[in-house]
Amino acid sequence: MNLFPCTLVYVDVDANPGPNSTNRDPLSYVSQAVCLNNSLRQLGMPTLTIMTNAPALVAQRLAKMLPQNRPAVATLTATIELPKNTPFYAAHFKLDLMDQMAGSLPVDSMLLLLDADMVALLPLDSELIERCAEAGLGVFDISDQVFPAYGSERVVADLEIVADRRLRNPRWYGGEFLLATPDSLRTLVPRARASYARYLSESERLKHHGDEAFISAALNSLADEGQVLIEVGAYQAVGRHWAGNNYRDLRWFRCCSFVHLPGSKALLEKEARFVEFVPDRFWRHMRVAHLRGRMRHAAKRIVRMLSGARLAMLSAHALRGLKG
């Protein structure tokens, strides 16, 4: 089974940048994709394809690179419409990307859909790829991160609103990684378009916005109907890392095939300046960013503690004044 690594770079200067993006350059995701492609090349994996609605602009940004080092560029035909102030606006167009891939991928290939702000550190396990090929879909379950952060009741409610049904075992799937055969895409895309329509019409009731909401709803519905989903996170095929976060020991990510760094886009853009991706060099930079993040988190906790103590002291003084 051949893999087709692909990422979305949707360019719209009038849309709000992603909530995790600090670079206002609309083509900054191209630099991140270059880093991702370099990391894929280092492992001997197929070239990354950038699917974009602005192929000329993306090709211009890549023009100074050696041809053999460049990601491939393909035109995305965008069909969906939504308000440009929608959070994670660009990510919604993954639905159009998946639709195009469903009709163009060879039967012996699998779409490996990746976010641009990722790196490949290790090859994907061949047995895992085989399992995903047999099932049709390999997905990244991040319920253990999303449910505690937002409350399981709220997350499940959003999923069931978008799915328009009660779900047997609601799960939230990360949008940064998807392995899918053409047949499974042809099953998933129509269901995801129906979920997207409800997502759009019910957007004011929802706490969660972005492609993960309606793709997760579609995947849950298919799972309830018997579709087997291979959960790739358990195999450490992918991990989502936030600098300074104690959710997992940093060393755990060193054993992942792919690491998603949504809060470290600047680090990836700097790494893209190197001709070759060197895992040990990148890992050192990632560790430094993680330690700095830990320090920022610690400083914020101290500020909150001091602020709380000051408020308590002022309240005590005010109470004594009322009693006096």
Rank of each mutant, 00 (worst) to 15 (best):
M1W: 01
M1H: 05
N2G: 06
L3G: 05
P5E: 10
C6M: 14
T7S: 05
L8W: 00
L8F: 00
V13Q: 06
D14K: 08
G18R: 01
G18E: 07
T22E: 13
D25C: 02
L27Q: 02
V30C: 02
V30P: 03
L43H: 04
G44E: 04
G44N: 05
P46V: 04
T47A: 15
I50V: 06
M51C: 11
A54T: 09
P55F: 03
P55L: 01
P55R: 04
A56V: 13
Q60W: 12
R61Y: 03
L62M: 02
L66A: 15
P67K: 10
P67L: 10
R70C: 08
P71L: 02
A74L: 07
T75D: 15
T75Q: 15
L76M: 13
T77Y: 14
A90G: 06
L95S: 00
Q100E: 13
G103N: 14
G103V: 04
P106E: 02
V107P: 05
S109N: 09
L111V: 06
L113Q: 13
L114R: 08
D115M: 02
L122Y: 09
L124S: 03
R131E: 07
R131D: 12
E134P: 14
G136K: 03
G138I: 00
F140A: 06
I142E: 13
D144G: 08
V146F: 14
G151M: 04
E153V: 14
V156G: 05
V156I: 09
D158K: 00
E160F: 07
D164M: 05
R166E: 09
R166H: 13
G174W: 07
F177N: 11
A180T: 11
A180S: 10
A180Q: 11
P182D: 02
D183C: 10
V189R: 09
A192H: 02
S195A: 14
A197W: 07
A197H: 06
R198S: 05
Y199D: 00
Y199R: 00
S201W: 08
S203I: 12
R205N: 11
K207Y: 14
H208A: 13
A213N: 07
I215E: 01
I215C: 03
A217I: 07
L219P: 02
L219H: 03
L219Y: 09
S221Y: 12
A223R: 09
G226I: 13
L229Y: 11
G233E: 10
W242N: 12
A243M: 08
N246E: 15
L250M: 08
R251I: 15
F253K: 06
R254D: 15
R254Q: 15
R254A: 15
G263I: 03
S264Q: 10
K270P: 00
A272I: 00
A272H: 08
V275K: 15
E276K: 05
E276N: 10
F277H: 04
V278N: 12
D280L: 10
D280Q: 11
H285Q: 15
H285R: 14
R287E: 14
A289N: 08
H290F: 02
L291A: 13
R294T: 15
M295T: 14
H297W: 14
A299G: 09
K300D: 15
I302M: 02
R304L: 09
G308E: 07
G308F: 12
H317T: 12
R320E: 11
G321P: 13
